[in-house]
Design a protein around this nucleic acid. Structure first.
Lengths: 200, 200
DNA sequence: CTTGTCATGTAGACAGTGTCAACAGACTTT
DNA sequence: AAAGTCTGTTGACACTGTCTACATGACAAG
């Protein structure tokens, strides 16, 4: 029964999450308000509180979705590479992550937003851990193949992890004045990741 | 006349900026409110508006100070290196930046806060440009010395710029679970920067 | 089919925020 | 001394997140 406006919304929680991503995509995370979402969904101002007790709750749930997307995009990028070549896989993962961040800038911004990090609930922490583990596993696999062996695994992971991060932060930031055509991005991403995980 | 409470504050603008950094250092940027600062300074709630028409104004001014500190810390770190060795200078700058970020986490967080970036005024943009230019100049100097020559200067700058950034983001984030002793940080910073700008 | 329970909505209140306009005191300039 | 400009105060407005009390719909037990 999804036609007429009912008293009960049907799946308000999902609708809120969806509308929230829209708002973030459009006007940024600072324009996000529970009351605003309620208004947009034609529901009373306190209705969202039934599903997200606090605004930080909503942000956490949103960020969890974001991190799952990041993990998925990163791992999917490695799928096309032959499984025994860990080094190329790691390279592909870096490109996959960076590309996702550049194609989903608002979501990336939301995921890395300080308020989100500060109030992270356990579910969110788990999602982040998942991503971290994926990267670490890939780095360790690469080292087992005899590459990057001169580095402490922790440092190698930190490095491999941070670089796409920093790049994504810089590239998403309009203040940094990197005005690149959408087409160039793929090449740029490849060039940059090549610096971190050289395949040649 | 700095003893008794006067009607006019003396230098309210400076006091606001100072108190704002304190608040950010203590409770984070999300806890910053104009009214709160006014309260702390024993001044009426609308007094800050005389000096910062909007909250974004205050954040912008604050961030400008932050960027100036960053630029200074970065350039100062290069001073101890012999001037003709651009490559070592670049390396030192990376360490200087990263160390500043780790020793001034709250300020760094404020400077990189999305709200700040979004509402950046011209002064702030200028301060950021200054920093960017410093890095670019150092990279170009390095390339003139015959190093990093295989890279496009723009990409080399982006890379050199982003890595300490990403590292600082990762290291400042408690969620990333890098629990390192204060002592280890210096070594860690050196190791990481060495990956980007190898001096050996 | 009735009944009771529980999840999910509404209405209203509260404290807090940023920002504005109207006013007032103090400093500056002439 | 007078006029005018900074810089402060007071009070208001619309907005926010969150709480409590209440209403309604869904749904399972009897």
């Amino acid at each position: 029964m999804s036609e007429a406006r009912q008293y009960h919304h049907g799946d308000l929680r999902a609708a809120i999450l969806e509308r929230a991503t829209e708002v973030i995509e459009q006007d940024g995370i600072e324009a996000l308000s529970l009351r605003g979402i309620a208004r947009d969904l034609g529901v009373s101002h306190a209705a969202p509180n039934r599903h997200f007790r606090t605004k930080a709750d909503l942000l956490s749930s949103l960020a969890r979705v974001g991190w799952e997307q990041i993990t998925e995009a990163t791992l999917r990028a490695a799928e096309d590479v032959r499984p025994n070549d860990s080094h190329h896989r790691l390279n592909a993962m870096g490109r996959g992550f960076l590309k996702w961040a550049l194609l989903n800038r608002s979501m990336f911004a939301a995921v890395t937003h300080p308020d989100v990090e500060r109030h992270a609930d356990d579910d969110l922490k788990l999602a982040i851990d998942d991503f971290q583990r994926s990267v670490r596993d890939a780095v360790v696999a690469t080292q087992r193949e005899g590459r990057l062996t001169h580095l402490d695994p922790a440092i190698a992971t930190l490095y491999t992890n941070s670089v796409p991060f920093g790049l994504a932060m810089s590239l998403k930031n309009p203040l940094f004045g990197t005005d690149l055509s959408e087409r160039d991005i793929d090449e740029l991403v490849a060039n940059l990741i090549e610096l971190v995980v050289p395949t040649s």
